[in-house]
Deep mutational scan, measured.
Amino acid sequence: NQASVVANQLIPINTALTLVMMRSEVVTPVGIPADDIPRLVSMQVNRAVPLGTTLMPDMVKGYP
Rank of each mutant, 00 (worst) to 15 (best):
V27D: 02
N46M: 13
V45P: 02
A16L: 14
N14L: 08
D58P: 07
Q44H: 15
V60A: 01
V6L: 08
Q9N: 07
P33Y: 06
N46P: 02
V30K: 13
V27A: 06
P33V: 08
L55T: 00
G62M: 11
S4N: 00
N1A: 12
V49K: 02
T53Y: 09
P50F: 07
V45S: 05
M21R: 00
V45F: 00
D58K: 08
Q44W: 14
A7Y: 02
M21W: 02
E25M: 11
G62I: 05
D58F: 14
V6T: 07
I32F: 03
V45M: 06
V5R: 00
L19G: 06
P64M: 12
S24M: 11
L17C: 03
T18N: 07
I37M: 15
V20I: 13
M56L: 14
Q9F: 06
L55G: 00
V30E: 08
T53F: 11
A16N: 09
S24Q: 09
V6E: 01
A48W: 11
Q9E: 12
S24G: 12
V20S: 14
K61G: 09
Q2R: 11
A34M: 07
A7P: 02
T54V: 07
Q2M: 15
N14Q: 09
K61I: 15
P33A: 10
V20A: 11
S4W: 02
G31M: 02
E25Q: 13
I11D: 00
L55R: 00
A7I: 06
G62L: 08
T18D: 07
I37T: 07
M56Y: 12
N14P: 02
A7C: 04
P38A: 11
M21V: 03
L55M: 09
V6H: 02
N8C: 04
M22D: 02
G31F: 02
L17Q: 00
T53P: 01
I37Y: 03
E25S: 08
L51I: 13
Q2N: 13
T18E: 10
S24C: 04
V20F: 14
V5S: 03
R47T: 13
M21C: 03
D58W: 10
Q2P: 12
K61E: 15
G31P: 00
L51K: 14
A34L: 03
L55K: 01
G31A: 03
A3F: 09
L19H: 11
I13Q: 14
P64I: 14
N14E: 08
N46A: 10
L51G: 08
A3V: 07
M21N: 10
R47H: 08
I32D: 00
P57A: 14
G31T: 01
T15E: 07
L17I: 11
M56R: 09
M43C: 05
